[in-house]
Amino acid sequence: MAAAPASKLLPNICLTLFLSLILLLLFSLILAFTVFKPKQPIIVVDSVSLLDLNVSITDGVHLSLSLNVDLTVQNPNKVGFEYSESTAVVIYRGEKVGEAPIPGGRLPGKGTEKMNLTLTIMGDRMLGKSEVFSDVVSGQLPISTFARLPGKVKVMNVLKIHVVASTSCDLIIDVKNESFGDQLCQYRTTL
C-alpha cells in the first residue's frame, strides 16, 4: 500500500490543529464564565467604637472625635483580588470631616483580610456647619462613614474585570453617654 502524498496530509493536519485550537478557546471561555466567573468582593463593618469624644459648649462649641472601625474584606472568587490604595471617610451633614488611608493589597482566592482604621474627625470642619451646636445640645450627633475599595479580578491571567466594593454606615453618636445610638450599615459591590 502506498503512503498518501504529503500535499494531501498537510491540509488535514492544518484543519485538525485549527479545530483543536477553536475547541481549546471555547473550553477556556466556558471555564472563565462558569467556574471562574468573577464575584463581587465584600466589605463588612465588624464594629465601630469611639476612641475619643471631647465636647464642650462653654464659649461656643469645642469638639474632638476619633473612631475605630474594624472591617473585614472577603474575596469570594477562586482567583485573587487586587485592590488599589483608597480612603475611608467620615461625613457630617454632607461634608467630609475626617479620613483614614486604606493601603492597597491583594487577597488570594477565597481569602479574608481584617483591617483596623482610626478615623480622626477634624473638629474645625464640623464647626463650620451651623447645625453642630443644635446637634450637640440635643445630645445626638449624626455622622456617616464610607469606605471604598476599587480593584480587579484576573480570570485565568487573561481577563481583567474591574470591581468596586464599598460600605457605608449611618451612625448617631449619643454625646451625653459617649456611645452610639442607631447604626445602619449597607454594603455595595459593582462589577
Rank of each mutant, 00 (worst) to 15 (best):
A2E: 04
A6N: 00
L10P: 08
N12Y: 15
C14F: 15
C14W: 10
T16Y: 11
L17R: 00
L23Y: 08
L23Q: 05
L23N: 04
F27G: 00
V35N: 08
F36V: 05
K37P: 03
V44R: 09
V45H: 06
S49W: 10
D52S: 07
L53A: 06
N54T: 14
I57R: 10
T58W: 01
V61L: 12
S64N: 11
L65Y: 13
N68H: 11
V73R: 04
N77L: 13
N77Q: 12
K78A: 15
V79E: 14
S86E: 02
A88Q: 13
I91W: 03
I91S: 00
Y92H: 09
Y92A: 03
R93Q: 10
G94H: 03
E95H: 08
E95D: 07
K96M: 10
V97G: 00
G111E: 15
L119G: 11
M122V: 09
M122D: 14
G123P: 11
G128A: 12
K129E: 05
S130W: 00
E131W: 05
F133S: 08
S134Q: 10
V136F: 14
S138Q: 08
S138G: 06
Q140L: 15
A147I: 13
L149G: 00
V155I: 14
M156K: 01
V158H: 01
K160H: 06
K160A: 15
I161M: 13
H162D: 11
A165M: 01
S166R: 04
T167Q: 13
S168K: 14
L171N: 07
I173C: 08
I173V: 12
K176F: 14
S179L: 07
G181L: 04
D182F: 04
L184C: 06
C185P: 13
R188D: 08
T189L: 12
T189I: 07
L191A: 15
